[in-house]
Amino acid sequence: MKWAMILAFSAVAVCSAIDIDLGAEIGMSYPTGQWGNSLNTGVDAELSALWIVTQSFRTGLGFSLSVFGSSDQGAASLTFFEPQLKAGYYLRPWGNIFNPGVVCAFGLCRSSLSNSGGTDPASWDPFWNVGLRWNFSIGGAFRGEVGGDYSSIMAEMETGDSFSLQFGISREVAF
C-alpha cells in the first residue's frame, strides 16, 4: 500500500511537469560510522526524474540501490534500497563547463543485511542526503555530473552515515 501511494504521487508529480530531467548516477559509498567496520566500500546506482521547476531549481523522485560487501572477502552483504524525494539547485544552469549545484534528498531506506546463509530482519528507516555537484555539458543534449554526498539513515539507536562519490548523466526531456 505504501508503495502504491508513493508511485501514485510520483505519477502526479511527473504528469504535472512540463520539462523533466532524467538522470542516472553511479557512485561509491564509504561508511563513516562503526557500522561499516566489517564492510567494504559500497557501490551505488540511482535513477531519478526531476521536474525542472525553474532554470535553477528542480525536484522529483529517485530510486537508488547500494550494495556493500565484506571487508575480509567474506560472505556478508548489506543492501540499501532508497525511494526518495530529491531536489537540486544549480547556480549556473546555462554553464557548459561549470554549473555548480547543491542537491538534497529525503526518503525511506530499506536496509537488508545477510551473511553466511543468514539474514537479519530488514529495517525501513527515514534517511536524508545532501551533496554538492559539478554539472557540465557532454554534448548531444546530455549533461554530466560529478560530486559528493553525505547521507544519514536515521535508524533506531544508531544512525548509518556514509559519504559517497557520485558520477551521473542526465538529459532534459520536454513533454
Partner: peptide
C-alpha cells in the same frame, strides 16, 4: 513499521 536497530548491531 519494520524498523529495527540494524546499524546499532552492525556497529557493536
Amino acid at each position: 513499521c519494520g524498523r529495527n536497530p540494524l546499524f546499532y548491531r552492525m556497529g557493536a
